[in-house]
Design a protein around this nucleic acid. Structure first.
Lengths: 124, 124
DNA sequence: TACCGTTATTCCCTATGATATATTACGCTC
DNA sequence: GAGCGTAATATATCATAGGGAATAACGGTA
């Protein structure tokens, strides 16, 4: 029995056309990208890395790594983590994290518009 | 002693900033992209897949697969292959192939301009 | 103190590409 | 027909990323 795809990239529809992807690099490489932003939104929604990871099809390990990577590269952390305590702990997206999410989606939206323009301008 | 990286992608410089990548999808998925266009240029320069592959750090198999993929998805082939014959055969980039190369570089250049604009517009 | 659910960390296993190697087919030249 | 350099194809080997399981640490609550 084939396992369900864990990566949205593999399910990308192959319908013809102009495609693109944008992200933001930091000192260590990728800093903010599509997957990371979706993860931030899920953390905001669920309040924990564990639940956020489960809600999309991502392993806790990967989710934690991504959060850690963002926190290390950001001037101020995007997610505040609490271990132990009420409910065992949890994760809170900071103001800076929310700002990053909004900025990325604008960036992403602008790209879609750009691709539309190019598709008209450049004829195959 | 570390082996030289065979993939340019891995050497991507992690200097901070807005990044993006564009490509064109066809019926089978990726149709024209950065690596494929560079390969076309090398074939144009060397006249064979073998030499083109060697000139960049790409295995012959991968190079052949990419050429085959483009030829299958294009209305008319991008590369005409000859097996046997003078010099053992060779590879010739067609007019359509050359057009694809020019169009992709325009697309790519437009993207760079787009990224510059975004970097000014969106402050991190 | 015992319990709980989460973060934090380590180790192993597997799937996936890619590379590397080997072999065959091809067709022109000599 | 032999030789040559290439395309074409199959097989094996390797590297890497990521998943999953297991475990410890943590700090509130009852």
């Amino acid at each position: 029995m084939p396992k369900p795809a864990h990566s949205a990239r593999k399910n990308a529809k192959p319908r013809p056309g102009f495609r693109g992807r944008v992200w933001i690099d930091g000192p260590e490489g990728t800093f903010i990208g599509h997957g990371r932003v979706v993860l931030l939104e899920r953390i905001l929604e669920h309040g924990s890395i564990t639940k956020a990871a489960k809600s999309m099809e991502m392993s806790y390990r990967r989710a934690w790594d991504l959060v850690d990577s963002m926190n290390r590269q950001a001037k101020r952390p995007f997610v505040e983590l609490a271990t132990g305590g009420k409910g065992g702990g949890g994760a809170i997206v900071t103001i800076d994290g929310k700002k990053a999410v909004r900025m990325f989606w604008r960036f992403h939206k602008d790209l879609q518009a750009f691709l539309k323009r190019e598709e008209k301008k450049l004829t195959l």
